[in-house]
């Protein structure tokens, strides 16, 4: 049993070693330029999608949840002290 466990452990470690040292070879399969454009547009669309979903929700819309802007009073006080009209 111990030998089997040791063998499995060595096999797993070997697999990870291969993964750790050879992942650069992915760029011989995937075109880097195409991958970067795909990633770029995927992340932009994902980010926009998540923001739209949050804004459409009732309790996760931070523009209409009634919570005050942080340090709003402190900022107003500083502006007043500086003599600014706004």
């Amino acid at each position: 049993m111990k030998e089997i466990t040791t063998s499995m452990s060595q096999s797993i470690q070997s697999d990870f070693k291969v993964m750790g040292t050879g992942m650069w070879q992915i760029w011989k399969i995937l075109d880097p330029a195409r991958t970067l454009w795909t990633l770029t547009w995927f992340l932009i669309v994902l980010g926009l999608l998540i923001h739209i979903l949050l804004f459409k929700s009732d309790d996760l819309n931070w523009h209409a949840d009634g919570r005050p802007v942080p340090f709003k009073d402190a900022a107003a006080y500083k502006r007043a002290q500086a003599g600014l009209p706004y």
Partner: peptide, 22 residues
């Protein structure tokens, strides 16, 4: 797999360089 196929035409050095930035 990548050792057998080179679909992008990149050399090992180019692939390693891109990987080191990516």
């Amino acid at each position: 797999m990548a050792e057998k196929y080179n679909l992008t035409g990149m050399s090992d050095e180019e692939a390693k360089e891109f990987h080191s930035i990516f």
